[in-house]
Design a protein around this nucleic acid. Sequence first.
DNA 1: GGAATGCTTCGGCTACGGTCAAACTATGAA
DNA 2: TTCATAGTTTGACCGTAGCCGAAGCATTCC
Lengths: 227, 227
Amino acid sequence: MKEGPDISHIAALIGDPARANILTALMDGRALTASELAEEAGVGLSTASGHLSKLAEAELIAPRKSGRHKYFNLADAEVAGVLEALMGLAARKGATRVRTGPKDAQMQVARVCYNHLAGRMGVQMYRSMIGRGLLVEDGEDVALTGAGRDFVTGFGIDVAGLEAGRALVCRTCLDWSERRNHLAGSLGRAMLTRMEDQGWMRRDPKSRAILVMEKGKAAFAAAFPET
Amino acid sequence: MKEGPDISHIAALIGDPARANILTALMDGRALTASELAEEAGVGLSTASGHLSKLAEAELIAPRKSGRHKYFNLADAEVAGVLEALMGLAARKGATRVRTGPKDAQMQVARVCYNHLAGRMGVQMYRSMIGRGLLVEDGEDVALTGAGRDFVTGFGIDVAGLEAGRALVCRTCLDWSERRNHLAGSLGRAMLTRMEDQGWMRRDPKSRAILVMEKGKAAFAAAFPET
DNA sequence: GGAATGCTTCGGCTACGGTCAAACTATGAA
DNA sequence: TTCATAGTTTGACCGTAGCCGAAGCATTCC
């Protein structure tokens, strides 16, 4: 009974509906202000402020002050991963949130997870790169091979620049809808950004869904064929 | 705000201290009765009964009636995985539960996770088998290679028997103390059982810790060398 | 400077949910 | 049949924690 870390405190934090809404809203990796999060959570500003300080205290989210605004981010990818895992558990009991609109279908296809591509397309990209020897898995970790560096560089990404940063370049993240890994880390983020820049896809500003352009579909399928 | 599965309900279930104790107690994979779990949780029997029906309702645990007893198990390995992940989050804030005794040190070395070997030795076994080409990872999944089947059979395990069962043979589970994968699934369980049968290790009946015998240390190091 | 905006703190209200004891059901033992 | 043990249900109690509005800081804009 007295073994291992105390789960209950952190789970209770996630367990409040307002706080869960806040965390879910932050899952797309964008930084949001306290007011925006209050709106998302459906509570008053003062209430949200209390929630936010608790979440920050537990280091689930990271606050940053900027002028008279205060921005919040998820603390890191591990937190995002735990949230995805919880969604996985919740999803199997049909506990999806209320109405499933057209957006929900698109969310299965492509969505933002923290800051990288998730959903069927995220998984396809990951598996394609593994299958072609561009990425190699080692336990929980994943790394670029030599061929992978060339490929990614050709894709228009400055690998050396990523490696100079503090963030982990390659990282896996478990996709809750597909139940498979997809690519996270600074490379995952860069790949998504690059595809947006090229006009392959575009983020829905009101949700985590990603809209894929016609030309993007073809280009993506060519770049990341199923193996 | 209205996207994706509803996390808060399931997190709130885990977030109550009594229920968290119950779930933690079930992490070693043994089935426990309602009375035993009440004891573990530190609440009265009637209170525990209420908690247990809620957990069962959410399919986090699976009840089985046997005579006038009612046994409870974790629902499956995915639930165990989420709990381990939450422990990982909790652990990094030094939120380990109260006193860290000698048992806690041993827990880092070897412990039971659901029903398989976890901790440093669990991770070492997994990585050794990957490194020698006995196991191969494919995304989130992991599988035995031909050489792996031979090795495991030579270890004294009836692979065909495992495959006949309903449970997934190979499965990964993220180790909260090591932050790496270890081997779960029915093979993971069989490996641990086999090592116990051979007298390499023995479970501490009062905790999740696994005691490693002297001869077990040498035999384990020989069977699963670091690569 | 003064006004407006963004956030925090405080006080008070409320309700949800955890708790237990006691009554009740069900299974097994004598 | 009767008693004992295991678990569930009910009802009453109580505390915690979420909620809001109002007042208080802090920062920026005019």
